[in-house]
Computed example of a mutant assay.
Amino acid sequence: MQTVLGEITDIVTEVDAVWAQLDRLAETEVEITPSRPAPGAVATSTRQRRTVIAACLSGTALEWYDFFLYGTAAALVFGRLFFPAAEPATGTLLAFATYGVGFVARPVGAVVFGHFGDRVGRRNVLAVTLLLIGMGTFLIGLLPSYASIGLLAPALLVLLRFVQGLSLGGEWGGAVPLSMEHSDPARRGLATSCVQVGCRPATCWRPASSGWPTWSCPSRSSSLTGAVAAAGWVFVFFPLLDVGSFPAILLAVGVALLIHAAMYGPQTVFIAELFSTRLRYSGTSLGYQLAGVPGGALAPVLAILLYDQFGSTVAVSLYVLAALGVTVAGVLSAPPVRQRAG
């Protein structure tokens, strides 16, 4: 009970802090309605821009913390709590299947919250998504196990996981255009990449690594460079992990995160600038979240199945290589980005 109360306190504190930051944006935000298209960037002072970026970063960090916390629990405890009748490996696989429900829900959240975000404004919709995922995480912590209520336990787990995905699907797509529209037009890549930092709040060096490729070179070039580097590193990554020493693991993960940053940082501005202001919330949300289903929900399940089938990480590396091929094709086929007013 003490752990649950601590989690509740953390959630309430973080939501209150983000809500206060969002309230400060109310004076500078231009609402977007069908009869009144917004002209573009509206923050004129450095302080206002920093407030917007800080609010978007902290809100995204809170959303992703709750979302990834579920993944950790799925790997460690959900298998035996909600699927005790299954073999340990099968129980873990079933737990990861419920993890994938969040990815399936994200495009739904993108459609729902994107619709309202483009019409009633980013700020209010973002506040709703923060409260929604906080409640979902809190209720998951209160769920009784399979031993207490039987099949209703995993059913409720899936439902609450869907709520988490619904919320995240709406929050990310609102934070990106909000930070972009309130930033210096010459530094949009750096500003929007700060939203991506919220996905990895524990790795404090990520702002520099993800923001620098985005700011210093075109987003298309940075994404292609990262994809090519990842295609080579994926065949080094798993052998380094197999060494089993801390320095080898640190090298494998550190280089992988740097390569990932070259693609992940530019992703925000690359997607957002493809859409006009009136459709940016919906377009950015849906484009990103649809890709999250095959790229995120299926990835751990396929990796486990491939390793189990072939007994080697080479099969997993080839799967990653195929996914990177899709990335390269998508970047090369995307239309040239035109600088729009907003």
Rank of each mutant, 00 (worst) to 15 (best):
F96C: 10
V125H: 07
V176S: 03
V104Y: 10
V125N: 08
L94D: 08
R123L: 13
P213R: 04
F116N: 13
S183N: 07
W215F: 05
F162T: 00
Y99V: 12
A89M: 08
T90D: 12
L160A: 03
F116H: 15
G169D: 10
P144R: 08
F138H: 05
G114C: 10
F103E: 02
W205K: 06
A95Q: 06
A95Y: 07
G121S: 12
G109E: 07
W215H: 12
P185C: 02
C199Q: 13
R161I: 06
T192V: 05
R188Q: 06
F113W: 15
S210A: 15
Q196L: 11
G136I: 02
G169K: 07
G169C: 09
F138Y: 14
S209W: 12
H182R: 01
S183Q: 01
V128L: 14
A186E: 13
L142Q: 14
V125I: 15
G141R: 11
V112R: 13
V195L: 04
L152K: 05
V112P: 02
P154I: 11
V158Q: 04
F162D: 03
R187N: 10
L151D: 12
V125Y: 07
L126W: 09
G198K: 04
S209Y: 08
G114Q: 12
C194K: 05
A155Q: 07
T203I: 15
Q196V: 08
R188I: 01
V176K: 04
I133N: 03
L156I: 10
W215L: 08
T98K: 07
G136T: 02
W205V: 15
A186R: 14
R206I: 14
R106H: 11
T129F: 04
L168S: 14
G141I: 13
P144H: 10
P201A: 11
S183F: 00
L152Q: 08
D184E: 12
M180V: 13
L130P: 01
G134W: 01
R206V: 15
H182G: 02
W212H: 02
S216R: 14
T214R: 00
E181Q: 10
L152D: 08
G173I: 02
F96H: 05
Y146C: 06
A110L: 08
S167G: 08
L139A: 15
W172L: 13
G91V: 07
G114W: 02
G91L: 07
L157M: 11
G102M: 08
Y146P: 04
T98C: 11
G136Y: 05
D118F: 09
L156P: 07
L93T: 14
P201C: 05
T214Q: 01
I149P: 01
L178V: 14
A97V: 13
S210D: 11
D184C: 04
P88H: 05
I140T: 09
R206D: 08
P177M: 10
T192Y: 03
A153G: 09
C194Q: 14
H115E: 12
A153E: 03
F103P: 00
P107V: 11
S216T: 06
Q196G: 15
A191K: 01
L139T: 06
R161W: 05
G121H: 12
C199K: 02
Q164H: 11
G91I: 00
L157G: 06
V128N: 03
E87P: 02
V101P: 02
S167Q: 09
M135K: 03
L166E: 06
L159D: 03
I140C: 03
C194D: 00
G165N: 04
